[in-house]
């Protein structure tokens, strides 16, 4: 059972205090998007064995959504960060590369 630090209230929250929100950094495709883009936005999700970016909500705590970068295989957590960004911040990328030198950000 995971523990993730909520970047908003600073609590090391255990999984029972959190609600999962699936893959992070999806781009919303609304009116005007073509069928393929819209399909991918709605349904296509990565399921990597290794480094992954996810959305979580501190549901029983401060109520805030946040992002987490972690390894789905070892459950190592590289860091949590603000929900208000479209890509992982540099310090998170550095933390990942330190621990997983061979990892590359998927396109």
């Amino acid at each position: 059972m995971l523990i993730l630090r909520c970047p908003y209230c600073g609590v090391d929250a255990e999984e029972t205090d959190l609600a999962p929100g699936g893959e992070a950094h999806l781009t919303r495709h609304g009116p005007g998007s073509d069928d393929a883009e819209f399909r991918d936005y709605l349904f296509q999700r990565r399921n990597p064995r290794g480094v992954h970016f996810e959305r979580w909500r501190h549901a029983f705590g401060c109520g805030k959504w946040f992002h987490a970068a972690r390894c789905t295989q070892t459950l190592e957590v590289f860091g949590t960060y603000s929900a208000q960004c479209s890509e992982p911040p540099e310090e998170i990328m550095t933390a990942i590369r330190t621990r997983r030198p061979d990892w590359e950000m998927p396109a």
Partner: peptide, 13 residues
């Protein structure tokens, strides 16, 4: 309420 907060916090912040 959670749905509204999700959109406000993660898409239309």
């Amino acid at each position: 309420h959670a749905w509204m907060e999700e959109w406000l916090q993660t898409e239309w912040w």
